[in-house]
Design a protein around this nucleic acid. Structure first.
Length: 420
RNA sequence: GUGGCUGAGGCCGAACGGUCAGGCACUGGAUUGUGAUUCCAGGUGAAGUGGGUUCAACUCCCAUCAGCCACCCCA
């Protein structure tokens, strides 16, 4: 047998049947984002590797071992983007968008070289939002409410919201040192993964699933204790805003984010229906990133949601796609086959929104009707010798009991318009 | 990257060291112009790939690839 070429591991084809779900999410997201006044931005999928090193963090797993990096023909190191925020910030700086507040969103594929499993792929898709130039908790609240509205519009009610604050950069730094000092002295009691994280991403140890490690953390210094009054006030107002809007949440003091640039507010929407990859949407504040990437100091907040994960959830919730066709044109006989395309074009002129498929490939009335039925179309249009001779067309309702009609070809458009 | 499980037609799926069930789907037919139900018929349609053991491998072994589960990571 010949060897077949297959898609790259962790990179999936999205077939037409499933695409209906994707479009449902994309259309809904687009509408919700528009209703909050957010503008779409599109950036390249490839950036210089340096951009991700400087934003996500040189020693994060993403940058250290998960990036698709390569040298281009000039020897520059480029990388497929592993996430969207860095590109967005780069573009905002590059085009001078930061002189006033910006509410942006983007959508597209991201790439991480990870071991695939359900809900985790090497090419995956995110919809993300980035807001620049706003400092207060009001905008944190807005982006969270926006996501809550999106779930509601998609008919998804099973997500839980967890929030936390990481403090401003100084507080985060101070806490990080305290935590490392505490854990370093007990390093022998830490699990292997956490020992490694001690030098790479110590805050993530808080998130560890190891019972031993969690026990050790019970007496560790607490982030809450190093937070200043300003950070506390920000977080309290965030909570109050969510309360006022009726959005339920849990404060999770162990919630940290994997990327280096987060500070203050962080949040995650989590589902229990996706196994180990239960985070559907996550984000937070990253007030230092713009400056870190060479722009003028600009506060920012954003999130990204994983489309594959959302699609999976929506699929579980029993979403069914609406039929893609209104009418299916059946044409039997040589004369009809010849006349059908012209008739169809006239109909499309008259009804630009009509979704019509013309039967191609010949076949009996019977076989063509089978195709018409399977297409999901509401009506079958019937063109044969008989109809041609009388300058009419048969219109059969495939989904209801109404009588088959035979409007003249001239009045077909209005006949259909009245019935769709 | 680590550990484990899995791999049969387009899809689902039973059994089995000795001729690869069944179902769905597909094609044709059941009055010469009408689908979805029903009935009948049909297919030079399949064991991820590569090795090995055996008289004989879908079945056992090894490797590889892919998927899944957990870790890890994170959307």
């Amino acid at each position: 047998m010949r060897k077949h070429i297959q898609a790259i591991r962790g990179m999936n084809d999205i077939l037409p049947e499933r695409l209906a779900l994707w479009q449902q999410i994309e259309h809904t997201a687009r509408a919700v984002l528009a209703s909050y006044g957010y503008s779409e931005i599109r950036t390249p999928i490839v950036e210089v590797t340096e951009l991700f090193k400087r934003s996500i963090g040189e020693v994060t797993d993403i940058v250290e071992k998960e990036m698709y990096s390569f040298a281009d023909r000039h020897g520059d190191s480029l990388s497929l983007r592993p996430e969207g925020t860095a590109s967005c910030v780069r573009a905002a700086i590059e085009h001078g968008l930061l002189t006033q507040p910006q509410r942006l969103w983007y959508q597209g594929p991201m790439f991480r070289y990870e071991r695939p499993q359900r809900g985790r792929y090497r090419q995956f898709h995110q919809i993300g939002v980035e807001v620049f130039g706003l400092t207060g908790p009001d905008i944190d609240i807005e982006v969270i409410l926006l996501t809550a509205r999106l779930w509601q519009r998609l008919g998804l009610s099973g997500f839980r919201l967890e929030i936390n604050t990481l403090g401003d950069s100084a507080e985060r730094q101070l806490y990080r040192e305290q935590l490392v000092a505490y854990l370093q002295s007990r390093a022998d009691q830490l699990d292997a993964d956490s020992q490694r994280r001690l030098s790479t991403n110590p805050l993530r140890i808080l998130d560890s699933k190891h019972p031993e490690t969690q026990r050790l953390l019970a007496d560790a210094p607490r982030l809450l204790d190093v937070l200043g009054s300003e950070t506390r006030a920000h977080f309290e107002r965030l909570c109050a805003g969510l309360d006022a809007a009726g959005v339920r949440y849990q404060i999770n003091p162990r919630l940290v984010r994997g990327l280096d640039y987060y500070n203050r507010t962080v949040f995650e929407w989590i589902t229990d229906d996706l196994g180990a990859q239960g985070t559907v949407c996550a984000g937070g504040r990253y007030d230092g990133l713009v400056e870190q990437l060479g722009g003028r100091a600009t506060p920012a907040v954003g999130f990204a949601l994983g489309l594959e994960r959302l699609v999976e959830i929506l699929e579980q919730s029993g979403f069914t796609a609406a039929p893609a066709l209104d009418v299916y044109l059946v044409a039997v006989g040589e004369r009809a086959e010849l006349a059908a395309p012209a008739l169809a074009e006239r109909l499309r002129d008259a009804l630009p929104n009509l979704r019509m498929q013309c039967h191609c490939g010949g076949g009996s009335f019977k076989s063509q009707f089978k195709k018409a039925d399977k297409s999901g179309a509401r009506f079958a249009l019937i063109l044969g010798d008989d109809e041609l001779d009388r300058a009419v067309i048969g219109v059969k309702d495939l989904r209801g009991d109404s009588e088959q009609g035979t409007p003249s070809q001239a009045e077909l458009a209005s006949y259909l318009a009245a019935r769709l």
